[in-house]
């Protein structure tokens, strides 16, 4: 759907206390347009939980259950069960959680809920850090990135959570980006139509957390996809398909841009380039990226074989 044709109705009003240029808010606004009025949000501790604003005011035009950090999928399990009892099974139960609440502290509840086939959509807005507590490393932080708990750069690669969820045989999983809102809108709409557990992960460049000017957020999100640092794909009925630019990269129709073009836009990687290039770590980043894409290609080839 073209941007101009997105529903006009708003479920996230202006006035939320987010940082200027926050595409987490933008993505939530788009996701809520796709979800519509019949939606209950469950929001664990995260930036979004703190931008809800002060009681008794709220920028949300759908019901919200704020819940503890590790408890998003658990809270949604209860909401979903109760809605079934009330005959309101068509209401969307949606967890909106950050990468800390998803990859790390919330993974047990998420795994349990998906294993039980809980009828809900879990959306992880992934800005690759604990941003709400002030930029600490998470399981989603990429190798080499500066955070306030990895001052010289993270020494491990990020966890591959989508693969963990695919191992649960989740009915629907998708990755998305705040810079590709039509794709995001379509994926949330798709998730709505499927029974059982759905997982969508949105890549969210974070200006204060990644150290870049706030007016560059959309650009940097695009660069992540164009360089292959972030891949847009969908997984449904056990089949993996790539979307848009990521599909063209996968099929070799277009060369990914050099990863350094993406990294150099962000202060969190500056120490890999200044005062001198850190060839060892840059090589490791490229090696890991290539192995990711080699695995993607192998998986898609296996499906078509």
């Amino acid at each position: 759907m073209a941007l101009k044709n997105l529903p006009r109705e708003e479920f996230l009003f202006p006035g939320a206390a987010a940082c200027p240029g926050c595409v987490g808010c933008l993505s939530l606004r788009i996701a809520l347009k796709a979800l519509g009025k019949e939606t209950i949000l469950v929001i664990p501790a995260s930036c979004t939980a703190s931008i809800e604003g002060y009681f008794p005011k709220t920028p949300f035009n759908v019901p919200v259950l704020t819940i503890a950090f590790e408890a998003g999928a658990a809270g949604a399990s209860g909401v979903s069960a109760a809605l079934k009892r009330l005959g309101k099974d068509e209401t969307n139960v949606v967890v909106w959680a950050g990468d800390g609440g998803t990859y790390d502290i919330g993974i047990q509840a998420l795994s349990g809920a998906v294993e039980r086939g809980t009828h809900f959509i879990y959306i992880c807005y992934n800005n690759e850090i604990y941003s709400n507590t002030g930029i600490q490393r998470s399981g989603a932080t990429p190798f080499g990135a500066w955070t306030t708990t990895t001052w010289t750069g993270k020494t491990e690669h990020r966890k591959d959570l989508p693969r963990i969820l695919m191992a649960h045989e989740i009915p629907y999983l998708a990755t998305a980006s705040a810079s590709y809102v039509e794709d995001l809108f379509r994926k949330v709409q798709r998730a709505k139509t499927i029974r059982g557990s759905k997982y969508i992960e949105i890549h969210i460049p974070c200006a204060p957390g990644w150290r870049f000017p706030m007016d560059k957020t959309i650009e940097i999100g695009r660069l992540a996809v164009e360089t292959g640092a972030w891949a847009l794909f969908e997984y449904e009925n056990g089949e993996l398909t790539f979307n848009g630019r990521s599909k063209r990269i996968l099929e070799g129709q277009v060369e990914p841009k050099p990863i350094e073009d993406y990294m150099k836009t962000q202060g969190r990687f500056r120490h890999l380039f200044e005062p001198r290039r850190d060839e060892e770590r840059l090589t490791e980043i490229k090696r890991h990226l290539e192995s990711d894409w080699a695995r993607f290609r192998k998986q898609v080839q296996l499906q078509t074989a």
Binding site: A71, A74, G75, G78, V79, A81, Q108, A109, S111, R116
Partner: peptide, 27 residues
């Protein structure tokens, strides 16, 4: 006649109970 959720921990027992009760059913 009830929904029985066989969850993966007691933390989730209480959280799911909170979710269900907040949605308006006896728990």
């Amino acid at each position: 006649d009830a929904e029985y959720i066989c969850v993966e921990s007691e933390h989730t027992v209480m959280t799911a109970s909170i979710g269900a009760s907040a949605t308006g059913v006896r728990t």
